[in-house]
């Protein structure tokens, strides 16, 4: 297995785990983590595509950095929301899914 395909496979695995987490968990904090896992997987995969033909394409790297910043802000907002809701209602899941949280 080349280093490149290792990146790609790791990315794919991360996406898979994250996807499972997004669907199967109810605690909103877990979902935020799952979202970050998918994001990291995609970025890893993206970075790997920039290494074609032995020459490193800098564009994906620039885009990944931007993407990380965006994902970070989204995570911050998500955590903020879940904290605010937990303070008000003591729950950290959506009302329709609360029994499992």
């Amino acid at each position: 297995m080349t280093a490149l395909s290792l990146f790609a496979v790791t990315g794919a695995v991360l996406i898979g785990i994250g996807f499972y987490g997004l669907i199967a968990t109810r605690h909103f904090l877990r979902r935020v983590v799952a979202f970050n896992l998918i994001g990291s997987g995609l970025f890893l995969f993206f970075g790997a595509t920039g290494a074609r033909g032995g020459v490193t394409d800098p564009v994906p790297q620039a885009l990944i950095i931007t993407g990380i910043v965006v994902a970070f802000s989204a995570s911050a907002l998500g955590v903020g929301l879940v904290v605010a809701r937990a303070r008000l209602s003591g729950r950290a899941a959506l009302p329709e899914e609360e029994d499992g949280a």
Binding site: A74, R85, L88, L94
Partner: peptide, 17 residues
């Protein structure tokens, strides 16, 4: 900042993300 609004925002966030 009401609990129902926060829940609506969280639900929206899952779909948006």
């Amino acid at each position: 900042g009401k609990a129902t609004a926060l829940a609506a925002a969280m639900r929206y966030m899952i779909f948006a993300l």
